[in-house]
Design a protein around this nucleic acid. Structure first.
Lengths: 222, 222
DNA sequence: ATACTTAGTTGCATTTTGTAACTAATAGGC
DNA sequence: GCCTATTAGTTACAAAATGCAACTAAGTAT
């Protein structure tokens, strides 16, 4: 088949670190750019299904040891200029996870970098990351997407800080809570409060199960 | 290279026909599904660049004779079930054009079908079209995307009907005009009015040049 | 001239959004 | 125990955006 091409998956693995949106990069174990920080990526196997979700889950797990709670297709990048080995096509995904999940995996070759101060990365990875950041910033304006960055349970003030980190601007407390109310994706964890410091404790919330799109369904076969 | 895969492009070519959102399908000239109506599609050539835009422009031109005024990447579909020949990956695009452009190309193998009453199509083309329709319906709520369905010049009442066809619901005249005003993507064609019937003529508008994303830049090399 | 039809605007009621000021609940210092 | 500091969560109200009905405008047909 002369039309066959090299197809890869690259994953923009986003998290909130030190109050800023960050991307988890892994050290490349092969040439080109061996040893450089880059997006976790790999070849698509022709038996993997559900678009390239299966490949994305497998590759992210291989490179970081993490089964992502949230994974969504971003965009497909193709061209001759993106890889020194020649023309290639890459289906990019983005994953969202709470910082603690990356931390507790303590994979030696994975590190987090703030997305707004990235140095020049291999291939077209700066472009891919910029596209992912645009997407999440845009969706943060009207959707519950950033909730996946806040962990299993969280308080509303914590969640607001996550949204603020995504959007890069301060939000009004009342407006934010009204918006969350109307999105109707959260449920209070019964009785559970978070007490942290010398002040009124806050109610813990979690995503309702039907909005989780989680690890269980994504990770089948691993 | 055992990782090489078959990669294609499929294009959801949308237009407004008889006041409804329609998709232009072309008769397949090869097996499988020879003679059936399907999305215009074809193999990606490994020298084509700008993601798969070049391939999308070439393929749409081959199958319909049209250089699309507007083309945007939709999503990538992959899996074993979508093609009887086995696993494949397809980068889907959607194109928007005014009905007259398709009509005046009078390509014998191209026909327009309303998107909300499609019969079962080959491959996963029903899924791809549904995804495109979702995307345009969503973008019609806040963006100028449907303007590309309205032709070179159009009146505001005509444009409103295009938006209504996309969204599938009637819109308020004043609100619609306010929204268009604030999007600030239109300019009046100086002096030009459309007189059509026994009533007050309407002002003609067009997209400002910077929002066209047009044929000139897309069609290089054809 | 008058009636009819669609284009486009104006004024106002309704709804949504943003803000400040309030109350609530905790820990810690004295 | 009681006051203070601090953050959580609510309330009341002002400001802005949206939706609607009624208006004026400009043409053709009779």
């Amino acid at each position: 088949m002369h039309q066959a091409v090299i197809a890869t998956v690259d994953i923009v693995f986003l998290t909130i670190h030190n109050g800023r949106l960050g991307v988890a990069l892994s050290k490349r174990d092969k040439e080109p750019f061996q040893g450089g920080d880059a997006l976790p990526g790999g070849y698509i196997h022709a038996q993997e299904d559900r678009d390239c979700l299966d490949a994305a889950v497998r590759i992210l797990h291989e490179k970081t040891g993490i089964l992502p709670p949230y994974l969504e297709q971003l965009q497909t990048f193709a061209g001759a200029a993106r890889d020194p080995r020649g023309w290639s096509v890459s289906v990019a995904y983005f994953a969202l996870v709470h910082y603690r999940v990356i931390e507790s995996a303590h994979h030696p070759d994975v590190a987090i970098f703030p997305v707004d101060a990235l140095r020049r990365l291999p291939f077209d990875h700066n472009d891919i990351i910029a596209t992912a950041v645009d997407r999440i910033r845009n969706k943060a304006q009207y959707s519950s997407l950033p909730c996946h960055l806040a962990g299993e349970t969280f308080t509303l003030p914590k969640l607001q800080k996550v949204y603020e980190a995504c959007l890069g601007e301060a939000l009004n407390k009342v407006s934010f809570r009204r918006k969350m109310q109307e999105l109707a994706v959260l449920e209070a964890v019964p009785g559970q409060m978070e007490t942290e410091g010398a002040h009124r404790p806050a109610q813990l919330y979690r995503l309702k199960a039907e909005f989780k799109n989680g690890l269980k369904s994504l990770a089948r076969g691993l």
